[in-house]
Structures are given as structure tokens and as C-alpha cells.
Computed example of a mutant assay.
Amino acid sequence: MKKVFISMTLVVAGAMCMSFVSDITGIWKGTVKVPSGEDVEITYHLKAQGEKLTGVITAATGDEIDIQEGQIKGNDFSFKLDFGSNNVLQAKGKLYNDSIVVKSQIKSYTLQNTFRRVTESK
């Protein structure tokens, strides 16, 4: 009986840790300096579905682009954004408690930015 209790406790504790660690679902905002030197506000609308990451990225201008090939492994995630004309951004990131850090590359240009979780106002 003691072994069963310990096993169940470990399973529940592990599941709780995973739910806290990989809760990337939500809205994240930050500012990105684009190659032209401008600062652009970006909003990530992310959703975790197991190890799959989906969502949309929105610029302050209202332009949206869907995340492609999104993957999650623990606190690490990756995705692609296809801007057309052979312009594909490759992104890798890490989830922290209240922020995500995204390192992305498009052609020879590399960016690293931090985005903060925001709550939706109703």
C-alpha cells in the first residue's frame, strides 16, 4: 500500500509540474527591432496542444501570420513563419514564469527578444 501511495503521489506531482512548466498558452507582447531599425510591437497568441504549438502573431499594424510547424519540448519551443518570397523566419524560444524569450533568424538577420504574458481585459 505504501508503494502505491508513493507512486500515485509522484505521478500527480509530475503532472502538476508539467502543467506549470509548459503553460505557454496565452497572449505575449513585446517590441522587436526590425532590420530597418524600427521598433515594432508584436503580440503572440499561442496555444499548446500537447507537444504541438499553434497560434498567430500580430503586429501593431494589424498584420497577422500563422505559426507553422510549432513544437514544444518541456520549456523549449520552436516554430516557423513564412512571409512569402522565400522569406522564412526560424524561431526557437524558451518559456519562463512570466515571459518567453524568442531567438529568430531570417536569412542572415538574427533577433532575440523577450515577450511578457498579458491578461485579456474583458
Rank of each mutant, 00 (worst) to 15 (best):
S104D: 01
K2F: 08
S19V: 14
S78G: 15
M1W: 03
H45Q: 03
H45I: 08
A59G: 09
L95F: 03
S22C: 12
K3D: 15
L46P: 05
S19D: 13
S78T: 13
T25C: 12
G26W: 04
S108E: 08
H45P: 04
I65E: 08
E69G: 02
M8L: 15
K2Y: 10
K92H: 08
D76R: 15
M1C: 08
Q90P: 09
V21M: 05
G70C: 07
K80F: 01
Q49K: 14
Q49M: 08
M18I: 05
R117E: 00
E51T: 15
K29G: 01
Q112R: 11
T114I: 06
E41K: 01
D23K: 04
T25Q: 10
T25I: 09
Q90W: 08
Q71P: 15
G55D: 01
I24S: 05
F77L: 08
V11T: 00
F79W: 05
D82C: 15
K103I: 15
R117D: 00
G37Y: 06
L95E: 03
K107N: 09
P35Q: 00
L53Y: 07
S99N: 12
G93L: 02
E51H: 13
L46D: 09
A59M: 15
R117I: 01
G14T: 14
K2S: 07
K73F: 14
N75R: 07
I57W: 06
T31G: 07
R117Y: 01
G30M: 01
A15K: 09
N75M: 05
G62W: 02
N97D: 08
K47E: 15
K52A: 13
K92Y: 05
T9D: 02
K3P: 14
F77H: 06
K122S: 14
G55L: 03
G50C: 05
K29D: 00
Q68F: 15
V101W: 02
A48H: 11
V21K: 10
T119G: 13
T119K: 14
I67T: 00
K33N: 12
A60C: 00
M1I: 03
K73C: 12
S36N: 12
G26P: 06
L111H: 15
G37V: 05
K47M: 11
I42F: 03
T25F: 09
I65R: 07
V88D: 10
H45M: 11
L81R: 10
V34W: 13
E69Q: 06
V118E: 04
N75W: 07
A60K: 00
N86K: 08
V34H: 12
V4W: 07
K122A: 14
G74S: 07
T61D: 04
T61G: 09
